[in-house]
């Protein structure tokens, strides 16, 4: 088969798409280093290395040419998103296991690139938070909460030696989301809780800036047409609307929409995770439904669930619904009267 067209758009490849996504993460990573120390660089490096290792090994086992499929960059995106979703300064085997679930289980057991129904990074995250809940709640503390952030060597030391030479407790704390949830359940006053140093002007201290940087990177993706506005908009709107409604009902129990938008994985999820094209809805209306409901579920899980953040489970749950959503939201084809249900043979 080699019919028309005989020309292809230049500078256009999966690799380039993935590299642009990685580039858009850079502002967020810089902010993270600034506020939480270079620990994130260690986890990015580890996750990246593990991911390439697993990917290469599985490609070899499956008899798939290594070079084009390793260089497509997709596994690096998965690894980086996972690293950014996991706490830094965690023991190295946590990253190894997370990457294993993301790459080997979620991606390759389902057929590899383009075939996976579930977001690989979120599968990795979910597997870890179910298996190792304690390790997953110890996050690097931001400047202003901790006395100092670890330097790069200390970060390596913490990751590889665990509590060997330095105690991680000096550098870690619960996240703002976690703090809010546990203390509200203890019956503490909302104003008192928000007055603690872990809280900033919008979300968690430092984390709100990181989230803002994800927002900036994400908007770059939108303006470069790597993603459309639908999913980030609907995801954030879903979070804001749900959190807003709960906040109106009882502000003492439920944090403000602004807090929900700028803490935890909301921004990263909106622009980088829920938008994973392989696992997200693909039609314009479908994207709005998929992401809107994912945002809604995120707040519901954060508020009423047992886990510190809800983005991963919300996205995974909506991944399940994607084929159904897509089939019912097909856009109107030129010259047709209606869009809607397609796929009936």
């Amino acid at each position: 088969m080699n019919g028309s067209p005989y020309i292809l758009s230049e500078n256009n490849s999966v690799t380039l798409v993935m590299l642009k996504v990685l580039a858009a993460l850079i502002p967020g990573v810089i902010a993270q280093v600034w506020f939480f120390g270079p620990g994130i660089l260690v986890s990015l490096l580890l996750c990246g290395a593990f991911a390439i290792g697993f990917e290469a090994f599985i490609l070899l086992m499956r008899g798939i040419p290594l070079k084009p499929f390793l260089s497509d960059g997709s596994v690096l995106v998965t690894a980086c998103l996972l690293a950014l979703a996991l706490p830094t300064l965690a023991p190295w085997w946590l990253y190894l296991l997370g990457v294993f679930f993301a790459v080997a289980v979620a991606k390759h057991l389902y057929g590899g690139l383009g075939q996976n129904p579930f977001n690989p990074a979120m599968v990795g995250y979910a597997a870890l938070i179910i298996s190792f809940p304690l390790a997953m709640t110890q996050w690097a503390a931001p400047l202003g909460v901790a006395q100092a952030t670890p330097n790069l060597w200390e970060a390596f030391d913490l990751v590889f030696a665990g509590a060997g030479s330095i105690s991680p407790d000096a550098y870690t704390s619960a996240t703002a989301l976690d703090t809010w949830k546990t203390q509200v359940r203890l019956g503490k006053d909302a104003a008192d809780i928000l007055g603690q140093p872990i809280f900033g002007w919008a979300g968690g201290r430092g984390q709100e800036i990181v989230a803002s940087m994800y927002l900036v990177g994400g908007l770059l993706l939108v303006s470069n047409r790597l993603i459309t506005w639908h999913i980030p908009f609907a995801f954030l709107a879903g979070i804001a609307a749900t959190a807003g409604l709960l906040h109106l009902l009882d502000p003492a129990l439920h944090a403000s929409p602004l807090f929900h938008l700028f803490s935890g994985g909301a921004m990263l999820g909106a622009f980088f995770i829920a938008t994973d094209p392989v696992t997200a809805a693909s039609t314009p209306r479908g994207k709005l439904i998929y992401a809107g409901l994912a945002g809604f579920l995120t707040v519901i899980i954060r508020t009423f669930g047992g886990y510190p953040d809800g983005v991963a489970f919300a996205v995974l749950l909506m991944n399940v619904a994607v084929p159904f959503i897509d089939a019912y939201t097909q856009p109107r084809v030129f010259g047709h009267k209606h869009g809607g249900k397609r796929g009936k043979a």
Partner: peptide
């Protein structure tokens, strides 16, 4: 070289007939 479809939807956005080519 042809890589697998990643459902990015670029084809659907380029389609003048408003089809979903990747589907």
């Amino acid at each position: 070289l042809i890589l697998p479809c990643i459902r990015c939807g670029a084809c659907a956005r380029a389609c003048p007939a408003d089809l979903q080519p990747f589907e």
